[in-house]
């Protein structure tokens, strides 16, 4: 009986953990995607000063989230995000607008994919 109760308790904790993890993933995805809109419009209007500060803000946010994201998502995905962010930073530094815009879109897709992949949908289950 003790074992049954303990198992139920651990499983309930797992379910709660899963709900909390999904909420955190959605929040992190949103948090990281929002600055990308500001970055796109700044680059589009050649406002490199704003683009620079937005990028810094984005890097800080990523550093905050990266610590715990690795516990929940495939490490390959976090590595890909880090690589794309490094590319964005270099394209921004050398004002390479077309490459920068393309990489911002790639990063947007990668970030949107994080909560999407863990969402309870038929597509993900099957």
């Amino acid at each position: 009986m003790k074992g049954t109760i303990l198992t139920c308790f651990i499983f309930a904790a797992l379910i709660l953990g899963m709900i909390f993890a999904q909420m955190s993933l959605e929040k992190a995805g949103d948090e990281m995607t929002k600055p990308l809109d500001a970055l796109t419009s700044a680059v589009d209007s050649d406002d490199w000063e704003t683009a620079d500060s937005v990028l810094k803000d984005l890097s800080e946010k990523w550093a905050e989230n990266d610590k715990w994201l690795a516990m929940l998502i495939d490490h390959g995905e976090t590595d890909l995000i880090i690589t794309t962010m490094s590319e964005i930073s270099q394209y921004e530094k050398y004002r390479d607008k077309p490459e920068l815009m393309a990489n911002i879109e790639t990063l947007r897709e990668l970030l949107a994919h994080i909560p999407k992949k863990e969402r309870v949908t038929l597509e993900n289950i099957f």
């Binding site: 198992t7 139920c8 651990i10 499983f11 797992l14 690795a70 516990m71 929940l72 495939d74 490490h75």
Partner: peptide
């Protein structure tokens, strides 16, 4: 596979234990 989060291995194990304990009960 160190790229796979550890929780992806532990969560199914907990689930299987839960299923087995419930089936036995």
């Amino acid at each position: 596979e160190t790229g796979i989060p550890l929780i992806n291995g532990i969560a199914p194990i907990i689930t299987l234990v839960f299923i087995e304990v419930m089936l036995s009960a």
